[in-house]
């Protein structure tokens, strides 16, 4: 079966803050097929994490969400509450950011992982325990016997991050959404964590939010986000190695090994009606005063007027 795991249609998220409306996502369309891995990259504040929360319907009480989110054909925003709770964890597993606050400080990390596995997989405690130990071992949390018994405050941020990833990789969730899973990890552990996450995509799908384009390259597809819009989405190889959108090119150029040239100026809080990247773009022309749509070209979708097929 090669069906669709997640499909997002025209997703718009608006936050109400002190009477003013802040748009976090502005019409996002996204599809994730069975067995696929997608990296979602972009600057801070581009709406990547908001997308992750919106998919799990965690924004209900803080934002207005419009659009459709279909998880295996079911609309997440139409389903009954019980079904939703069922899908969170079992269907879609979120690896949140800031691992320091994701664990209960009063309980052992290993026990918390086992509890999660037990709840999701409905297996008994001994099985869950052995499974979490195998998983922690695979993620390099050695010596496992010690780390299993550790309390969160005794572990470093990188270890907690990997423990969180262990929750996701030990269960057979259909979709894993990882929010910056490699932040703060060093090269060796980053590698381990990435491989573990990518292996979950084999029997489901993976959506990985990241700043790090080197990690993004290991996913099949990469989507670049700017100001709540996807600006370039396609196979990772072509998006990163042969990018066409001026923003993606800017991101690549700001990598230390590619010259470390930052994108000039800042994200504008009020992007206006035209292309949202207009004020920072070095290839802008008068056409860019109008809002571009995603167009298919050179093997990927791009939101830019100045790219020719």
């Amino acid at each position: 079966m090669n069906g669709s795991v997640l499909s997002v249609r025209d997703l718009r998220v608006n936050f109400q803050t002190n009477g003013s409306k802040v748009s976090a996502l502005n019409g996002v369309d996204l599809d994730l097929a069975q067995g696929e891995s997608l990296a979602l990259a972009g600057e801070s504040g581009s709406g990547k994490s908001v997308l992750a929360f919106a998919v799990l319907r965690l924004l209900d009480d803080v934002a207005d969400v419009e659009g459709k989110i279909l998880f295996e054909g079911e609309d997440v925003y139409q389903m009954a509450h019980g079904r939703l709770l069922d899908i969170r964890g079992k269907g879609i597993c979120l690896v949140p950011q800031s691992p320091g606050t994701a664990f209960d400080p009063l309980r052992k990390v290993g026990v918390q992982i086992s509890d999660f596995i037990r709840k999701v997989e409905q297996i008994d405690a001994a099985d869950a325990r052995s499974r979490s130990i195998t998983e922690m071992d695979r993620l390099g949390l050695r010596p496992v016997k010690d780390t299993y018994e550790n309390y969160p405050h005794r572990m470093s941020g990188g270890m907690l991050e990997r423990s969180l990833i262990a929750c996701a990789t030990a269960t057979s969730s259909r979709l894993v959404i990882a929010d910056e899973p490699t932040k703060g990890l060093d090269r060796r552990t980053k590698d381990i964590a990435l491989s573990a996450l990518l292996s979950t995509a084999e029997n489901g799908a993976l959506m990985m939010i990241t700043h790090d384009l080197t990690s993004a390259k290991r996913c099949e597809r990469t989507a670049i986000m700017y100001c709540g819009e996807l600006v370039e989405i396609g196979p990772s190889e072509s998006v990163i190695e042969d990018s066409v959108h001026p923003y993606t090119k800017g991101l690549i150029r700001s990598m230390p090994e590619r010259g470390m040239t930052p994108i000039p100026r800042r994200v504008r809080s009020d992007p206006g009606g035209g292309c949202r990247f207009y004020s920072r773009c070095n290839e802008a022309s008068e056409k860019c005063l109008f809002h571009p749509d995603l167009r298919m070209m050179r093997g990927r979708e791009v939101r830019c007027w100045n790219v020719d097929a």
């Binding site: 932040k183 703060g184 470390m260």
Partner: peptide, 14 residues
């Protein structure tokens, strides 16, 4: 810069 995105990292480092 390990908590920051690429472009900000480049700006700050410069």
């Amino acid at each position: 810069t390990s908590m920051l995105d690429l472009s900000t990292q480049a700006q700050i480092s410069r």
